[in-house]
Design a protein around this nucleic acid. Structure first.
Length: 316
DNA sequence: AACACGTGGCC
DNA sequence: TGGCCAAGTGT
């Protein structure tokens, strides 16, 4: 007898959660004694950033800023500097702003509902649901890129999810969420982990997948993606220049003059003094003056840098 | 709705 | 070697 949709969903829940129990990574923000703040910080750091790169920075942050109030007590520039090379440094700014809001409006605690979390800077649909679920055990539908990929393959039979989250995907995710609170949290974590470790974007490990027996994509013969993901431009972009400038500002302890960012005017006679590696890297890009000015203006507008004594520095 | 936004490891 | 990709958000 063919199982109904309800039985099929329950079987998926059982198989994937069991797989998680035996195969999940031992991440510090998953330990029972990790604070909601620790989980919150991890979620912001993990946005578009691999776990292995987040791990050491998260440990330093937890040691230095164990509470929202501790972070809020320092300047946003310190947060940006301690963000180091995680990328998208605006996240550090928003995390600092979120800590400030928690201190001012939430008694120094991480808010518990998705709606309140959503009001914080840097927190969108995914992060609000993830924190409510993982930190507070609430039944929220978590949808990230891993979960979308698992759903696309196992349920919809496609190689990749659509470029942007669709209403249909959201409906599917909502329908799949176990009714029980604790089971819903386990499900969220388990599907995400399956997508991260097994049902990966490139060369998925279908041989060890707990649900390969009823994967719609496998059943369809693993059809290729029906669209070509557009690449992320990098070389020569403002992003690259901003990144190089931020690397300079992170290591600088005094304001950096704009002319220093341009590099030695006479390349045939480089300065005798050794210059810091980040500055040398920026000079090597040979950024047109106009683009450098635009990048600096962007950083100032985003509050990632500020003017001081005619030079540039992290906000302090 | 499409685009901008960092960084570095991998195949 | 270089394009692809990673627990997204804000505009």
């Amino acid at each position: 007898m063919e199982p109904g949709p309800q039985q099929a969903a329950e079987q998926l829940h059982t198989e994937i959660i069991s797989w998680f129990t035996a195969n999940s990574r031992d991440l510090p923000w998953r330990k029972p004694d990790c604070s909601p703040w620790g989980i919150f910080v991890s979620e912001i750091m993990l946005q578009q950033t691999p776990v292995v790169r987040v791990l050491p920075v998260w440990e330093l942050w937890m040691q230095r800023w164990p509470t929202p109030a501790a972070l809020a007590a320092e300047s946003s520039g310190e947060a940006v500097r301690a963000w180091d090379r995680l990328g998208y440094p605006r996240r550090a700014l928003r995390l600092h702003a979120a800590a400030t809001a928690m201190t001012a409006d939430f008694a120094g605690r991480v808010p518990e509902t998705a709606a309140e979390l959503l009001s914080l800077p840097g927190v969108g649909t995914y992060t609000a649901a993830a924190v409510a679920s993982f930190a507070f055990g609430q039944r929220e539908t978590v949808v990230d890129t891993n979960i979308r990929r698992v759903h696309a393959r196992a349920l919809t039979g496609k190689a990749l999810p659509a470029p942007a989250l669709t209403a249909a995907e959201m409906r599917l995710a909502v329908a799949l969420l176990p009714r029980d609170d604790a089971a819903s949290v386990a499900w969220n974590a388990s599907v995400m982990e399956l997508g991260a470790l097994v049902c990966t974007a490139r060369s998925p490990k279908c041989e060890v997948c707990p649900v390969r027996r009823h994967c719609a994509w496998v059943a369809a013969g693993k059809p290729a993606p029906d669209y070509v993901p557009k690449g992320q431009a990098w070389a020569g972009t403002d992003r690259q220049v901003r990144g190089a400038i931020m690397a300079v500002l992170r290591q600088a302890r005094t304001p950096v003059q704009r002319h220093a960012l341009i590099g030695p005017a006479d390349l045939a006679a480089p300065p005798a003094d050794p210059i810091p590696a980040p500055l040398a890297k920026l000079h090597a890009l040979k950024v047109p003056a106009e683009q450098l000015a635009r990048a600096v203006a962007g950083l100032l507008a985003d509050k990632l840098a500020e003017e001081h004594d005619g030079g540039l520095q992290l906000p302090g």
